[in-house]
Design a protein around this nucleic acid. Structure first.
Lengths: 349, 349
DNA sequence: CTGAAAGCGCTTACAG
DNA sequence: CTGAAAGCGCTTACAG
């Protein structure tokens, strides 16, 4: 029942540990015959190298992961970064080094590629990026793959690229959840409007699509009477547009607090459903202005993408699937701040 | 910038590594003067022993955690166990051994204590238990603490005991969330009844309390017209009692599927809010019979309590607080099965 | 292509 | 009370 070691295998085959090790890890300089013998025995005993010993003997070698990550809005991305850092702390003793480069709100492909090149030059073994959907970036990812540098996508996927895997939300589903909430809160009837970011984005479009789908399928008594856009960084007055509405769905994750304030100043009783938490949104939830906020669990996005990529690099563990999704959390007045991250022993608030 | 090691400290003080090690870990046989010198230097450099090397040198020593855990209902506890196992797999190479003993639906103190004694006899370094609130068990926990065996409570806390920490849900809050949902789904008016488990339990009582609190505070137009009990293991017919109701709150986590089926057969449009997921409850959510199920994230309960206790035993990391809460997840038709556990690389479905 | 040996940074049994 | 040394299970530079 004792755990089998390299030494055991070497003794049984009457060869040295070094040779066994080389055979197992496909290192050059092992005769095919020897290699075969070794692999047979490995399979027989289901031998797995001891992780701790491996890290121990590789002390000098660091595993470097480079990150190119959006910086704004902070109420969302700060939590992603907190997750990245939590994983970094957890894995520091196992040789992980994380280099995190932040970009602005607009993720221009050229800026991302520039940061990627810098990270590669500095010696990154793998990259985590928040991509934009451009051919240039896809080509870059393919090229990195050829160089042996795997890329994982965070928060936004790049489906037809050579990226290794994706960690992030299911945006369409989160739109469907919004539709579900709106339908229930209005008991199936009323006039609603949608407000979305002015930027053309896959994310915003998919959310709206999910929202409309659910209204069509299950709440025919709800009429969508207006579709507005709004900019994260500019003021906007949709005051007039709110008249006579029963509900508003705010589908981008950046303007919920603004919309809430507009409604508040209009002193109307519109049901407001939107995405992402921030201090302001939490306050508006408490006041009853925002009725529900749907969160995509930013902390977990950062935390798990690092753990998954590290497992891949350090122990050769391939993730269970290509797309791994964070939760779609429904936050109401009564479950703001419940549990969640605080339970993670590496989380530092 | 190089990481400082035991050897560095020893060289700087012109003493041996062994002595430095003994001083740092409060092991016997170090003169006060030497100890002081060492600790001063440790503080100066903020020296932290390398975790990997520590585990490496302690290979022979296992850290044994014993678990006394409820077994039923399986739709809930199976996920707790899955979480325990996930943590076990993650930490196996670091010396964790987990021995999990399961009890039945009713957690009799004497049965729990029996299992505790067996686990201690077998050499457990620490215990995780799902307690019942009896003086005997509290006394047992105090006694274990005196023996140097820390106890963590899972899912159900024992507040005035000597337990080290608690991981589990905030039951009162989850009742409040239920009240919030009921109020919103009924738009603030209607007749509702509550159904709870027939067992006297802190958990059930607190949930009902939270539910009533929110109705009182925020939804005066909702009238509670009936309070029923129901047994997890017995049939029950509340058919008549459902007449004329707009909503039902099912506060125990075990009978939601049953209540749902009763409502289904009555073909009525009662809003049904309850706790915990199971295959049947998921089916009822899809059919629209159950309107919302509130989950307390059983997987995380199992996963994190093991990680936290292991961190305490292996590296001396004390958890950030005494009570660590898992999430209060709101599950509707549209966010069944979204993300969550699958993202954990050690989760095996 | 293969082996013997040193080393990663701790811990501990043994000797003094 | 203190030191010198062996050992945990891998990896790799070096020698053959």
């Amino acid at each position: 029942m004792k755990k089998i070691t390299l030494d055991d295998l070497a003794k049984e085959l009457n060869i040295s540990k070094g040779t066994v090790d080389r055979a197992i890890h496909n290192r050059p300089g092992v005769s095919p015959r020897t290699k075969e013998k070794v692999l047979k025995l490995v399979a027989k005993y289901n031998y797995k190298p001891d992780k701790v010993a491996r890290v121990m003997s590789l002390k000098a070698k660091k595993i470097k992961i480079g990150v190119v990550c959006q910086a704004e809005p902070g109420f969302f991305w700060d939590h992603v970064i907190a997750g990245l850092r939590a994983a970094q702390r957890e894995l520091a003793d196992f040789g992980l080094e994380l280099n995190c480069q932040r970009t602005g709100y607009k993720r221009e492909a050229h800026a991302i590629i520039e940061k990627i090149d810098a990270l590669v030059a500095e010696g990154s073994d793998a990259l985590i990026i928040v991509p934009t959907d451009t051919p240039k970036l896809k080509e870059k990812i393919a090229q990195l793959k050829r160089q042996g540098i795997p890329v994982a996508t965070l928060n936004d996927d790049l489906v037809n690229s050579q990226r290794l895997f994706y960690v992030g939300p299911q945006v369409r589903k989160s739109g469907r959840v919004a539709g579900d909430l709106m339908g229930r809160f209005l008991r199936g009837r009323g006039r609603v409007a949608t407000i979305t970011g002015s930027v053309q984005s896959f994310e915003y479009r998919e959310r709206l699509r999910g929202f409309h789908e659910v209204l069509c399928e299950r709440y025919p008594g709800i009429e969508v009477v207006g579709q507005h856009t709004m900019d994260y960084s500019q003021d906007s007055n949709l005051f007039e547009a709110f008249k006579g509405l029963d509900g508003i769905y705010n589908s981008d994750g950046a303007t919920l607090a603004k919309v809430g304030e507009l409604i508040e100043s209009a002193a109307s009783h519109i049901v407001l459903v939107g995405h992402e938490l921030s201090e302001q949104v939490e306050a508006l939830l408490r006041e009853g202005i925002v009725d529900a906020a749907i969160s995509q669990d930013p902390f977990s996005q950062g935390y798990f993408i690092v753990k998954l990529l590290f497992n891949y690099l350090a122990w050769g563990v391939t993730p269970p699937c290509e797309q791994m999704n964070t939760r779609v959390d429904i936050i109401l007045k009564e479950n703001i701040n419940l549990g969640d991250q605080i339970i993670n022993p590496y989380y530092i608030p």
